[in-house]
Structures are given as C-alpha cells and as structure tokens.
Design a protein around this nucleic acid. Structure first.
Lengths: 332, 332
DNA sequence: TTGTATGCGTTATCAT
DNA sequence: ATGATAACGCATACAA
C-alpha cells in the first residue's frame, strides 16, 4: 500500500498524489477530491520513513530529562509534549539519569535519530565545570538546543528559566521582616538550580544584616525521614533555627516533620518555605507555603520559542520567568 | 556524509560498509578495521530514515499514557522508557488525556509513525463499553499491543496487571479483623482499575459479614481539601466510619486531614489505607499505610514480555502481579 | 494543472 | 570475502 497504488486507482500520477498529500495548491478540485476519496478507501497512510528520507526530518523533537519520576520534571515533560504535538511535532523522550556520561550518550543518540531540535529539561544539564558543557554546545552546532532552567550563552541555544535567585533572595527578606533570625537552607542535588538558590539565599541573608550558623546551608539525603533525623540531631547539638528555606517541597515536608517532633509551632516558632508548589505541599499539616516556579508557563514558553526558532525567526536566547510565593500554613 | 563517502575513502563498496555496519560476519578483519576507522575518522552516522525505509522499522515503540503528570503513570513511563532503551528501542510518548476520541487519534498517529508496538499505560484505556475498545483491537491487527493495568482478551494483545481485586478484598478482611465495622471506599476516576477495586471492596465487605452504608463507596473530586470537606459533611450528617480504603494515596491524605479536623485517633478510631505507595504517603502525620502495586515490576515485566513477543516467542497474554500491604501509621 | 524522472541513503539479492 | 545493483516510498525539479 503506497503512493503508487493510490495513483493507479485514482488514475493520476504519483506526483499529483504527493501534491494532494502536501496541500499543494496546483491541483484541481476534481482530482483532489478523487485522490482523497481513493486514499480514504484504501486507508492509505504515507510512509514516514520515505518521507523523512526526502525531507531529512520527521518533525520530531528530542526531550532529555534526567528523571521523569521527579514531579517537577514529569510535569514539564507533560506540558512540553502536549505543546509540541499541538504544533505538529512528535517527541522522543530520553530519561538520562544524572551522570554526565549518560547525558552525553543520550544526546548523541537523539542527534543520530535526526531530531529537529533538542529540549533539555531541568537544571541538571548544566555542569559546574564549564568544559563539561561542551557536549551541549556541540549539539547546538547541529540543531537548536532548548534549555529549561539552565543557561548557556551560545548561538543556537535558547534558555527559559525561572528566577530562582531572586525568588529565594526575596523570600529571605520577607521572612526576616517577621523577626526571624536563624535561617537554614536545605537542598538536595547539586544542580545549577540549587547553586543559584543558595546564592540567592546567602545574598539575601547578607542584605538582611543577618549571619549564618555553620552548616546552616545543608545538603540533605534523598529521604524525608532521614532528613528529619539530621535536622533533629543538628538542633540537639544546640543549633538555633527559626526559619527554613528549601530547594524543593519534599525537604520542607521533612522540616514540618522535624517541627512536629519537637512540638515547635509553625509558623510562630519556625517558618518553612517549600519550592515547586507540588502536590506534596498540600499533604502536610499545616500545608506548605511554597515558591511556585510555574512549570506550565516554563514549558509552553520553551515550545513556543522553539517553534519560532524553527521558523527562522530571530529569538532572544534567554527568557526569565518570575516565581510566586504561595502563602499557605508554614510561612506568611 | 553518507555510506558512499565512507566506501570511497575506505576503498571498498557500499555493500561492505553496510555489512560492517550491521555486524555481518562475511567481512575480513582487515577491511572491517579499515572501514571502522574511516567511519570514526569521518564521524559517520547512518541515516535512520534510509535505514527505516529499507527495514520498515526504526526500532521505536509508542507509549500511550493518559497523563504523565500523574505520579503512578509518570513512574511507569520512566521505567518503561529505561527498559526499552536497554533493549535497543526508542520510544514515542503520547499523553492522550482521558477522552476516548483523543486516545483513538493518538493511537492512530502512533501507528502512522510505524512504531513496532504500542504500550498503553494505565487502566484508563479500557472503556466500560466493550465496543469502545475496538480501536485497541484494530491496532492489535497491525502491531503488538501491550497493556498495563488493563485486560483485553484478544490475539496480539498482552496485558500485565496488578491484582487490584484481591488486594482490596484482602485488605477489607485485614481491617475487619481489627474490629472495624463501618467501611468507606474512596475513588476518583472511573477507570477500569477503580471498578475492579470497588468490586474487591464490596465482595470483601460481604465476605466479612458486614454491610455498607449508603454512599459508603464514594466518588471524590480531584482536590484533596475538597474531598476532606465532603467527608466532613458526610460525617456530620450522621454517617459512621471507622475504616477508609482508597483507590489512590491522595484520597487517603484527604482522609487523614478529615480525621485531623475531627480529632479522630488514627488508627484506633479510624484506619486509613492508601494505594500506590507514592511519595505522598510519607508526607502525612502519621504516614500512610498503603497498597504497593509495584510500578517498577509492572513496567519491566511489560517490556520483557514485549521483547519476547517481538522475537516471535509464544507468550501468555496475561500476567498478574500481586500487591503488597505496606504497614505504616494509618492502618496495621 | 498534470506527468516524468531523479535523488534521498540504506539494505539485500545476486553475482563473482 | 567483496562488488554491482535493485528495491524501499516519497518529494520535487523540470517538462509538457
């Protein structure tokens, strides 16, 4: 079942069938109708490989995501995927994990599949060591590279980020204005986003005229109750703490549990701020106040930008979106 | 940069290059090394479209998922995707939403992309009305169809499910043995999985010699605090309740909040059981007891089965995996 | 408006 | 073991 069968049955040449297929105007309505009806009758579907061979594209975008079981990333992938399809593009999804070598391999794999562009979802694709980002730059020589929550200043790389620095910076000021003095910042992975947040935190502390205790910026394990225990032992060693900011909601959950164990009142004795406005935030008691980084906007903006790039438009290579402070029970 | 360039530079025919590319044995080690080194030197990558055109496959599997921002489905997609790539397959992901018409369209779209098989993730792909499943069956005439948490008895359809019926049935018995008498079952979507769980629930209640109040099997909104409110008003209307089973963890979270509002002691006054063993379960206080349906096993089993199908092996068309009761704070 | 002929980069079937 | 060549199914430049 191919274009020849259709042309034969419709009594026209394959060129005409192809024209109908591609919406070419130079076809009389009669023949067009004839061809369309034959196509329907035969249940004809053009072969994407042959088409791809000629056009050297399958209208497919590669998505790279370190871990689609992470709620934030999963949501981003969801919105991206929807938006792409709305624009007539399909997507290859690759979950790379967090190791540089795998990221490189999967990116290469996607390029070998002749994707039209690549979207890197999440700040884990930006390595602290500059040279380690060369694989992204070299990819940009072949196709447009879109980054969500990562920034690389290079031609053909387009970045959409939320302003993590400002969000944390502002939040410190906000909480400090309530009279809180002993801040902690909990983070988990050593991603670019975490580093940015930490900078915002330190600068915010300084701007508020406060000082940080040793270990006040704390790297936490990937387990909520373990994190709670660490906080407890930190506290029992005499550390003071009346405000905890975090790089993600799950850490704030741990903080809530920590407060619960000690009978600390939230938010009077301890204010806690999550990050990402995820589902976890409405499971705790009280519910989490959290910084919303607008995954949906981030994702859709990325796709829209990509579409403009593919159309050859001149597009700025950095778009920043501000975060929102969501007030619920753990901070105000 | 194509196979001709390589053949020219290596001083062999394209046939030989192709043989090297495909690991054909009939190539002398000398020429093989020669060709390989030229390929490396030129940075040659075979064109997937041309290859697909010849082989009529791109080693690509289509994944259909109603909503990848659902934690359970996102996890499944993650594991599936990993397992596929480990087997040398790529995947197209399509998030269809919950409407039948969209599911049909996306399935057709995937088939038009010439995928080698289709995986339907989640029980939302099984319609209560038999005839509405014809689109799945007709797809099975073209390629193998794998279903996770759905069952359709038809050639070329292979299903992997967790035993939701038994899990809920057993859990009712377990909780009843603690002396609890007034059960509720909360569910959200009207999926096949929900219906199965409800059957297990009703049968379990009957087997335990108990009776259900009106509205004891309750359809809940997609919002935790709204669900809590509904439970509260139900309770205030005089309904009794000392055990709540749910179709997913988020509903159990609502139940915990409900108990909290009333000052009910968990699990003495009220036992609560979640479903899916998701992250949400460790955010509440006390943490959720929940039924683990083993997403990872489910996903990997599906891919393994698919690989055997693609190799032409004779494979059973239904695999069932049992659930585990995870004991934490809300039921024992 | 329509048809003819060629190219796209592989794989596979023949020969040799 | 290697080479020549015919598919594979479509898009498109060029002719008519």
């Amino acid at each position: 079942m191919n274009i020849y069968d259709v042309s034969k049955k419709a009594g026209v040449s394959i060129a005409t069938v192809s024209r109908v297929l591609n919406g070419n105007q130079n076809v009389s309505d009669k023949t067009k109708d004839k061809v369309l009806s034959v196509m329907k009758e035969l249940g004809y579907t053009p072969n994407v490989f042959a088409r791809g061979l000629g056009l050297n594209t399958m209208h497919t975008i590669g998505i790279l995501c370190s871990d689609s079981s992470d709620a934030f990333l999963a949501n981003a992938v969801y919105y991206i995927e929807q938006a792409l399809r709305k624009n007539g593009y399909e997507s290859f999804l690759c979950c790379t994990g967090y190791e540089l070598e795998n990221k490189k391999n999967y990116l290469r794999l996607l390029l070998s599949k002749r994707v039209d562009a690549v979207i890197l979802v999440g700040s884990h694709y930006l390595e602290p060591n500059k040279a380690d980002n060369d694989y992204i730059i070299s990819a940009a020589n072949e196709v447009p590279v879109m980054m969500i929550n990562g920034y690389l200043n290079h031609p053909n790389i387009y970045c959409t980020l939320c302003d993590d620095y400002q969000a944390v910076y502002d939040t410190v000021g906000r909480i400090a204005s309530h009279g809180k003095k002993d801040f902690m910042f909990l983070y988990r992975s050593d991603s670019n986003s975490s580093r940015t947040k930490i900078r915002g935190f330190r600068d915010g502390i300084e701007a508020a005229g406060l000082t940080l205790a040793e270990d006040a910026v704390m790297f936490c394990p990937n387990d909520i109750s373990e994190t709670k225990e660490i906080l407890l032992s930190y506290y029992r060693e005499g550390a003071k703490c009346d405000a905890i900011l975090t790089s993600e909601d799950s850490l704030a959950v741990a903080a809530v549990k920590f407060a619960g164990s000690l009978g600390l009142r939230i938010p009077q004795d301890l204010e806690i701020v999550g990050y990402n406005n995820s589902l976890l935030g409405i499971c705790t008691e009280p519910e989490l106040s959290t910084l919303d980084n607008h995954v949906e906007t981030l994702s859709i903006t990325t796709v829209n930008t990509l579409m403009r790039v593919l159309q050859g438009a001149d597009v700025p290579n950095k778009t920043t979106i501000s975060n929102d402070f969501i007030v619920r029970g753990t901070a105000y």
